[in-house]
């Protein structure tokens, strides 16, 4: 579903709703990963409400564009996106992480429509997305595959096996987006195991690389909706983001990787997210 007239208005509207709703889920469940949810939400709102072709009433539609949440802990972002896209009703969201909920702490495709594969352990989504892109290429189908990884997640070696394969196969139907918030669970990425220069690494692996402000939805929309045909390379988008973006006390704080707000913090966040 494309919204060609005023794409960024809708994206902004959906992103705001996703942030408010995701934070409420974390507040109520007393569990979650709000920092990484909030760094990714503008990217996901852009994909689901401005870029991807899908039909929420037919989650198995063979020609759908695929989105793979490789940073599977960011379920606040994924579940609010899928809910806003119409894959399931809003009254499922309060079950987040409750016993027998279909909204696991990490996504399960067998429980929830719209989830393409099960993720959670890092470094899994990207290889699966690669396989989907290969299948599309083999079948001559036009769908695109988007995979979002964390930046800390790039420390997992399986990503580099996938990067090497995608570059070798010149898979222009595959787009990797790296949520470059520069923080992992315990500390900064560069003080943990440095990743810079990420762009040079991906270029060396045969990718076309673009850097973008991961909260500039107009720029994200231009970049992600542009046709990749004829490029002859997979696309790596390094989205520079802010962990906890949109809530003043969460921004750029590693402790909000899996932080849970108290009542005052929740109220303050709801005042800021307007």
């Amino acid at each position: 579903m494309m919204h060609a007239n005023d794409p960024t208005d809708l994206i902004h509207e959906k992103a705001l709703w996703m942030r408010r709703r995701a934070f409420q889920m974390v507040y109520e469940a007393r569990l979650g990963h709000p920092g990484g949810d909030f760094s990714a939400i503008d990217i996901m709102a852009t994909l689901y409400f401005g870029v991807m072709q899908y039909d929420a009433t037919r989650p198995d539609w063979a020609e759908r564009d695929r989105f793979i949440m490789s940073k599977g802990h960011a379920t606040g972002a994924l579940y609010t996106a899928l809910c806003a896209a119409g894959y399931f009703p809003e009254d499922w969201l309060p079950t987040y992480m409750q016993p027998r909920s279909m909204l696991n702490g990490h996504p399960n495709r067998n429980y929830l429509p719209g989830v393409e594969t099960n993720t959670g352990p890092l470094g899994h989504g990207f290889p699966v997305a690669l396989g989907i892109a290969i299948a599309g290429q083999m079948s001559g189908q036009d769908f695109r595959t988007f995979v979002l990884t964390g930046d800390g997640e790039q420390q997992e070696g399986s990503n580099w096996e996938a990067a090497l394969n995608a570059g070798h196969r010149k898979l222009e139907n595959l787009t990797l987006i790296i949520d470059r918030n520069r923080l992992q669970q315990g500390a900064g990425t560069e003080e943990t195991i440095g990743l810079d220069p990420l762009d040079d690494k991906y270029r060396a692996f045969g990718w076309h690389v673009e850097m973008v402000d991961g909260h500039d939805v107009a720029a994200l929309h231009r970049l992600l909706s542009a046709s990749a045909k004829g490029r002859g390379k997979p696309l790596c988008v390094i989205a520079n983001t802010v962990k906890g973006k949109g809530v003043s006390f969460m921004e750029n704080k590693a402790s909000w990787h899996h932080g849970v707000p108290d009542a005052a913090q929740f109220a303050q966040a709801m005042e800021e997210l307007v």
């Binding site: 290889p127 396989g131 989907i132 892109a133 290969i134 096996e161």
Partner: peptide, 13 residues
Amino acid sequence: QVMVGVSAGLANG
């Protein structure tokens, strides 16, 4: 690792 991950993706496709 990518061999098995890719196979899951191929099945998705």
